[in-house]
Nucleic acid binder design. Structure first.
Ligand SMILES: [Mn+2]
Ligand SMILES: [Mn+2]
Ligand SMILES: [Zn+2]
Ligand SMILES: [Zn+2]
Lengths: 137, 137
DNA sequence: TTTCAATTTGTAATAAATACAATTTAATAA
DNA sequence: TTATTAAATTGTATTTATTACAAATTGAAA
């Protein structure tokens, strides 16, 4: 969990204005697990009555743009968001829509070595993300 | 490319009725590259005037259900479809929305071995998909 | 051929996301 | 502190992707 001061500094460093809406969206992202925009809206609305859904989308776009948060791919055609911008992978539950973070530097090394040898013709590889599909028990 | 007869057999084997719409959707999927439903609709409409967009969605859902085709995750909140149901990975272009197939049994082996040793607590891993992010040249 | 469940169609409805003009506000400087 | 202003938020309308559902049609079995 990040302190409010850390969040404020993060927003400032990105050259964005620090607004209650932005701080609250980031806090909601930490509280919720890879939520959709609408879930964030519901959560943040409790602290900021009168919040506009449009603002949530605006804030999320701005934070993604500045690499403070990330988008997460899902099977369904709905966007989800990730409080963790650092490189990591995801475990997807096949039956529910649960998504969990997966950090593994050893695996990252393995993959990096593999793709250094193996040349992908016509494609400049910049990042590898794993989707671990399965079931949480 | 698959012959019409192969497609017909595939649909029959799945226990579905063989309709011109279903055959044409599968053909369109082979012709187009990981298209959206709307692109498939436009393509198939040329051969089947009066085609309903709803039918395209219905057909795609039925084919996914029967594992004849697959859905593809994308950054954007739009579903895309894949003619290839067999296990493979994807190269995503960061700048355009291009997606290309990536088959690599050697890598699959490497990953399988890695995850056989490494235990994921509380998660039963069933499939690993790589998202290779980069740029086509 | 006849039958009928499965499929397609057409229309309406929903959900997620975006456009945009008016209002408000955070940050800066006087 | 107050004034200034570009940036951000809000509210409303709109778009886009998808789904719901009832009526019409049709593929395949009898
Ligand atoms: Mn957006
Ligand atoms: Mn669908
Ligand atoms: Zn994550
Ligand atoms: Zn593919």
């Amino acid at each position: 969990m990040k302190s409010v001061q850390d969040i404020v500094t993060e927003i400032q460093d990105a050259g964005l204005k620090v607004t209650p809406q932005r701080v609250a969206v980031i806090q909601a992202l930490y509280k919720l697990n890879h939520p959709r925009a609408e879930e964030i809206y519901k959560e943040v609305s409790q602290n900021i009555p009168g919040l506009s859904p449009t603002t949530v989308y605006n804030v999320l776009d701005a934070l993604v743009e500045k690499d403070i948060i990330k988008r997460v791919k899902t099977e369904k055609g709905v966007m989800r968001y990730d409080a963790v911008p650092d490189h990591h992978h995801h475990m997807y539950c096949i039956t529910t829509d649960r998504v969990e973070d997966f950090f593994d530097p050893e695996l990252d090394n393995l993959l990096q070595n593999y793709f250094e040898k193996k040349q992908l013709k016509g494609f400049k590889l910049e990042d590898i993300k794993l989707q671990l599909m399965g079931k949480f028990e």
